[in-house]
């Protein structure tokens, strides 16, 4: 079981309110991602759940029981740190066994569980090495191994992939998702990378300046962002947000249109502009279109083989059905 409920949880450092009172429920077995720009309070929120920081107000319940004042070790949670936080003076085996040793398990039971975790994580051949002798990905797996042997009611991940190179990150992303499918344990995952959030989460919590901007499934956030912040944060490349006269035409303060919902044509269309930088990815091409009079640059996604060059004149046609509209407060208008 691993149902975590935050009830008016708040955090202040001195006079600075890092997290204003917020409510959130994480259901058992859910993969929840906290995402937001750096400094938005997502790591602090995770540490509050872990018990590594005291809350300044409100209540944290784990499986219905008040855990607000419970020590980190007694909450039944396991945490994987950004730096992996492996014990450098212990072998992989000892690292993984450490929580079991602290819990006072017999040597035999420790060995059994460590072997089991190592097999799952492909670490069997590395058990007698020290963390210093492992690659980044292997260290990451040891950190996960140390978490899973405890059989926690929930896993907490604090930006676990940010120290890995791009290729490994994609691989580990899959492994963690796979692990979640197999264990079906609650996972709370903090990242600043919206791609990780979109690909892994059952439920995304978008945070900004300590406040929850929106909670929802990845596709909900993609299709119906509640405000301009979420609209700009979720999706890659970013949604084009257009204010001023063009928005006024639609009777709103801001309109938003995703790069993939704009058609490009060299001959005719709604908006006219000049091609600036083009990024060729092979499968897709992203054009930054300048001089449209709408915004500094409009990003457009086109197919891989579009023959447009720097300085060419282009016409853009947004798909009106896919357009998002926001009021003066930045809130979505249906």
């Amino acid at each position: 079981m691993g149902r975590i409920t935050l009830d008016k949880v708040a955090k202040r450092f001195g006079d600075v309110e890092v997290i204003p009172p917020l409510d959130l429920t994480i259901e058992d077995g859910e993969f929840v991602v906290f995402v937001g720009p750096s400094g938005c309070g997502k790591s602090t929120l995770l540490r509050l759940i872990a018990g590594l920081e005291d809350v300044s107000g409100g209540q944290i319940r784990i499986d219905g029981k008040d855990a607000t004042a419970v020590q980190p070790a007694k909450r039944g949670l396991a945490m994987v740190f950004q730096s992996y936080a492996l014990y450098p003076h212990m072998t992989v085996r000892k690292n993984i066994a450490f929580p079991l040793r602290m819990a006072g398990l017999s040597q035999q039971e420790q060995d059994k569980k460590v072997e089991g975790a190592a097999a799952v994580l492909n670490l069997t051949n590395y058990l007698d090495r020290r963390p210093g002798q492992l690659s980044g990905g292997q260290r990451q797996r040891v950190a996960i191994g140390r978490a899973i042997v405890r059989e926690p009611s929930a896993f907490l991940f604090d930006e676990p992939l940010s120290n890995l190179d791009a290729a490994l990150r994609v691989g580990m992303r899959l492994e963690i998702s796979e692990l979640h499918n197999r264990l079906a344990t609650t996972m709370v995952y903090v990242t600043h990378d919206q791609v990780e959030a979109m690909t892994m989460a059952d439920k995304i919590v978008v945070l900004n300046a300590g406040r929850i901007e929106q909670v929802g499934s990845p596709l909900e956030l993609y299709h119906r962002p509640r405000n301009t912040f979420v609209a700009g944060f979720i999706g890659s490349p970013k949604m084009n947000l257009i204010e001023g006269a063009e928005a006024a035409k639609h009777g709103v303060a801001t309109i938003g249109i995703r790069p993939e919902h704009i058609a490009v044509s060299p001959e005719s269309g709604t908006w006219k502009g000049k091609v600036g930088v083009s990024e060729h990815l092979g499968s897709d091409t992203f054009f930054h279109v300048l001089d449209t009079g709408l915004a500094d640059a409009i990003t457009v996604r086109a197919g891989g083989e579009v023959d447009l060059h720097h300085g060419d004149t282009v016409y853009l046609s947004p798909d009106a059905a896919k357009m998002h509209r926001f009021d003066t407060e930045g809130l979505r208008i249906e």
């Binding site: 980190p72 070790a73 945490m79 950004q82 730096s83 014990y87 003076h89 212990m90 602290m102």
Partner: peptide, 23 residues
């Protein structure tokens, strides 16, 4: 981080200093 990890892993203050910090 490493000391916090030990704390999460269930180490008491004594174990944290004895088994993690000191070595």
């Amino acid at each position: 981080d490493i000391l916090e990890a030990a704390r999460m892993d269930g180490a008491s203050l004594r174990s944290e200093i004895l088994y993690v910090l000191t070595p």
